[in-house]
Simulated assay, not measured.
Amino acid sequence: MQSLNASRTPRRDPAPSRWAYRVHRMWLTPFYRAMLRVGLPVFVLLFVAGWYISNPTNRYAIVEKVGEIRRSIETRPEFTVKLMAIEGASPVVDRAIRDMVPVEFPASSFDLDLEAIKAEIAALDVTESVSLRIRPGGVMEVTITEREPVVLWRRAGGIDLLDDTGHRVASLKARADRADLPLIVGEGASDAVTQALALIDAAGPVAPRLRGLVRVGERRWDLVLDRDQRIMLPETAPVAALEQVLALDEAQDLLARDLTHIDMRNPARPTLRMTEPAVTELRRIRSYESGDTQ
């Protein structure tokens, strides 16, 4: 009887339980597998890191260590700038740049704000273009192109050097400091430098007598010669009007006569103004001729 009862004992079902089946299905899901393989380790690491950083002492130690590593890199010889070399600058501009750049050498290249230094140098009136770079060997090279002054502009505040675009280059204390450059005078003269240069070039035949150009009403030029002679040019086509006067001078020695003004504001009807002695003499001659006639 016992053997029959033993043989009737139910066998264990090999199928998984309901919970085991659900866990197995979840494990086969890519999202849950990624969460367990990646998300859980990351969470643990973040938790541990957050707990470690929450301690002020640990934070201070981390900051100090990072600063120490940074200083050790920045102070390496290959990152040290030992001097500044300036190319293309005159001695005066060279000294000005060295005085205005607030850097004490040697210095780390990480501490140099090249863009700020470049902007400061570019702000100089004399600077046309500037470039900066760190050369091998710890040299900060500054390459500058200076504006070339072509005229002097006398204004109420003094005398300025201007380039061919009318941009200010520098100031002068006296006209004699740059006697080799032509002079322009008057309000708005700096805005018409190109036209002034064309007139100066056209006035080549009388260049030794040229004293300067005067801007009148910010719209036209007077060309001033020695002996207080003045050629009053029109607002439009002033070069052509000047060439007309020079042609008359070549043919009839116009500028050698006792004239104070040659008015070419209307090129079709030039007007001459004589000196006072010449006017007096002309009146005397006319009076004499009138007396003879009578």
Rank of each mutant, 00 (worst) to 15 (best):
L223E: 09
L213E: 05
E218W: 13
T236N: 14
R219L: 05
R220G: 02
M232F: 04
D226G: 14
E235W: 04
R219S: 13
W221V: 09
L225P: 13
A241K: 03
E235F: 06
V224S: 06
E218Y: 10
A237V: 06
L223Y: 13
I231S: 05
R227W: 12
V224F: 04
A241E: 01
R227I: 05
M232S: 10
I231H: 07
R220Y: 02
T236D: 12
L213H: 04
R215E: 00
W221R: 07
W221L: 07
V224Q: 12
Q229G: 10
M232I: 06
G212E: 00
V239W: 08
P234H: 02
L213Q: 05
A241H: 02
A237S: 15
R215P: 01
A237N: 14
A241W: 03
R220H: 04
V239D: 08
L223F: 07
Q229T: 15
V214K: 06
L213V: 04
G212S: 02
G212Y: 00
E235Y: 06
A237G: 12
V216H: 04
R219V: 04
L233N: 06
V216W: 04
V239Y: 11
L223A: 11
R211S: 03
A240G: 11
A240W: 06
P238T: 01
Q229H: 11
P234W: 02
T236Y: 09
E218I: 10
E218H: 14
W221G: 11
G212Q: 00
R230F: 06
R215W: 00
I231E: 06
R220C: 03
Q229K: 15
V239S: 13
D226Y: 10
V216R: 05
V214S: 03
V239R: 14
L233H: 06
V214C: 01
D228A: 13
P238A: 00
T236M: 07
R230L: 13
L233P: 04
G212R: 01
Q229L: 15
R220S: 02
E218Q: 15
L225W: 07
M232V: 08
L213A: 03
V216K: 03
R211T: 05
D226N: 14
L225S: 12
W221T: 08
R219A: 13
L213Y: 03
R219D: 04
G217T: 07
P234G: 03
P238K: 02
W221N: 09
V216D: 09
D226H: 12
R227N: 14
L233I: 07
L233V: 07
E235L: 08
R215N: 00
T236I: 07
V216C: 03
L233G: 05
R219F: 08
D222F: 12
V224A: 11
P238V: 02
R211V: 01
V224I: 12
W221K: 10
R220F: 00
L223W: 10
V214R: 08
P234Y: 02
A241L: 02
T236P: 04
D222K: 08
V224P: 07
